[in-house]
Amino acid sequence: KFTDLFEKMVPLAVQQSMTVYNSRKAEIVNRLIGQMREATNLSNGVLASLNLPAALEDLSGDSIPQSILEKSRAIIQQGGLQSIDQLIKDLPELLQRNREILDESLRILDEEEATDNDLRNKFGQRWQRTASNDLYKPLRTEGGNVRNVLDKAVQADIVVKQRYGTHREMIALLCKPEAELNAAIPSANPAKTLQGSEVVSVLRALLANINKVKMEREKLENDIKSAQFDMTSKFLTALAQDGAINEEAISVTELDNIYGGYTQKVLQSLKSQEEILGNIQNSHQEFSTMRQSNADANQREEMLKKLAAAHDSYVELSSNLKEGTKFYNELTEILLKFQNKCSDIVFARKTERDELLKDLQQS
């Protein structure tokens, strides 16, 4: 049952090539997924602004359109208002906890350095050891890097708080029970029965198409994320054959093999969305001219649009909040390691200092 502890060990050149390869891969994966998510957000925004699909479902003019009901249930099911209220309340505490660990770690370095300097002044040449200031430079650089990251995180928190402030009210409305939600939507006398009309069925088909494109993207995103290829053996062979690794050439070729196909599919997905959205906007033009527009209908439509958009804001906001929470928790782990490094070295310095003092007092 012997497992070779050194099984994964590879020459440093291979390890470094792997690091560069992985960051190239991450860049491609993030770009592809980012493009698709951005396109989906755009599509959601366009549909919400056209009050689609709600406008097609809104027959009676006084009951909640099916798509709005589904959106309401979806976010209630994901935790609704309480979950984002809680996450937004926790953010400052998470930030503060990280700051305290960082400040405390740097404080003990400063404190030890101060005593080292005092003793150096007192004993002059006889205080034979490296100055704490030199010794702590790398740790202080690392501390500085963490502070920069924390400052950027604070900016992100501000963005999240602003989004929360802007959208909380509508999200709260969308989270209300059906009766209250329905009461909040201005009613309008029933739209002229457009059901049979050609443009409604065209719009319905187009909406089905855009949904299909979005569903395909979810699968594509999973495929892209799960694509794996063990480059280690490729780099090892290259090193063995040529004595060196042309990382860029090998990586670029391999990455193209793995992600070339996906890149095409993503571009195709963006292209078909653009086409479908164009058609939707044209058909919607026709659809809205046919419907009688009056104050009540317009008011109702405005509210339905806001409710549809509130769902998208909720999805975005809760993903931002989860990302922030994960960020701060991961940073805390890094900071605890950093704090250990600082307290270990300070402890060692104190032990060394006491011994040196003892020798000096004896001699």
Partner: peptide, 16 residues
């Protein structure tokens, strides 16, 4: 993503 990446902070001494 909104929040900065922690990758650089995670890089251990060996890689520097």
């Amino acid at each position: 993503s909104l929040y900065p990446s922690l990758e650089d902070l995670k890089v251990d001494k060996v890689m520097k």
